[in-house]
Amino acid sequence: MPVTDITTDPENLTMTVTAEFAAPLERLWNAFTTPAQLERFWGPPGWPATFTSWDHSVGGRAIYTMHGPRGEKSTGSWEFLAISAPHSFEVMDTFADEQGNPLEGFPAMRMTFTFDATAEGSRMINTSYFTSTEALEQVVAMGAVEGTRMAMAQLDAVLQDLREYAQGKGTRVELLDDTHVRITRLVNGPRELVWRAHNEPDLIRGWMLGPDGWEMTECVVGTEVGAAFRNSWAPVGDTEGEAFGFEGEVLLFDAPRRAVTTERMQGMPTETLNDLNLYEENGATLITLLIEYPDKETRDMILATGMADGMESSYARLETTVLQNA
């Protein structure tokens, strides 16, 4: 995790975030001042941001909307007050409607971002200044501290070349908190084909096979909000085990970038929320699957089944499927 400290100071009405990165100062500056890169980390997992307006000049404004997994939206606006590249910039940050107009009843805050070179790379210090104790407490109560920590943890993937960050490292599982797990896997192929491999039955049957000795017996896809999906597997030949499957409902469908679904084992009540995101860079696609479990016990039980190993086998086949259809 790059965040080294988050401090709230009610006396001085500030919240300060310090984060260290193994990247040059100029690279860190570019990540915070390029909308396409900001969109990859400005917003905690499950709430990615889209910048719809960007004028990085003193007096200019940026407008962004974070999109929750169930269709929720939260929009903010930055007014740039000062810029001193590549070391600092200052904004007035407000909660806003989608046109950038401030929302009544929500606090505004002045934010400064400073960037410095270090022996290991670079450091970012972000200080938010509030107008009252109530405003500071309101933002903290909305989850700003943990949300910021989780958002900044996404920056390592942004600052590195995507292949350098993920190629050859297989399926990686990160425990973000008691109920959220992030799974990442790089596939050597374009995003469009990786998306099709997740949403076209003929392609799905070529890679989503589970462990050796099993076959996919049912594949019903959902490609619009409200649609249902259903996948089933059964053992083949002398393979031991009982048939099983998963089903759920599509909550968000944004081709070819993001799909959010509920998922539960057929015949069982326990449900997870699966948030799939695809990002392409130089012909390679990073698959990021954020899973929300109902509780820590369910999370640990499912991970203990060897889920990650099974997913790696499937993702390896997916990569072959993608290359064959390129």
Rank of each mutant, 00 (worst) to 15 (best):
F89W: 04
F244P: 03
N126Y: 01
E164M: 08
N325E: 11
N325P: 00
E137Q: 13
E26F: 04
F253D: 14
T133S: 08
I6L: 14
L290C: 02
T50E: 14
W207F: 05
R163K: 15
S232A: 15
P10G: 14
I83D: 08
V158S: 14
T217H: 06
E218F: 04
E247W: 09
G68V: 05
D55L: 00
E146S: 15
R205Y: 07
I183R: 04
E174K: 07
I63E: 06
K73T: 15
I6D: 15
E240H: 04
G170L: 07
N199R: 07
F21V: 12
A227E: 13
T288K: 02
T16P: 08
G241E: 06
T65S: 15
L303K: 05
V145C: 07
V250F: 01
L28D: 00
W78E: 07
G213E: 02
N101G: 09
W233K: 00
M301N: 11
P107F: 10
M1L: 15
G59A: 11
G306A: 08
G206R: 12
N274A: 12
T52I: 09
G76N: 13
V140L: 13
T288D: 10
G43P: 02
M301I: 08
F246D: 07
E137C: 04
D254W: 00
T7P: 00
W214I: 09
A157C: 01
Q99F: 03
R123T: 12
T171K: 01
L273T: 06
N282S: 15
P107S: 11
R264C: 06
F115M: 13
P35Y: 11
V194W: 08
P24W: 04
F244V: 01
A31W: 01
P256F: 10
A197E: 05
T262I: 10
G189N: 10
M1I: 13
T14W: 06
L103T: 05
G310D: 03
T34R: 05
Q167T: 02
P45W: 04
P211Q: 02
S88K: 13
W233M: 03
F130R: 02
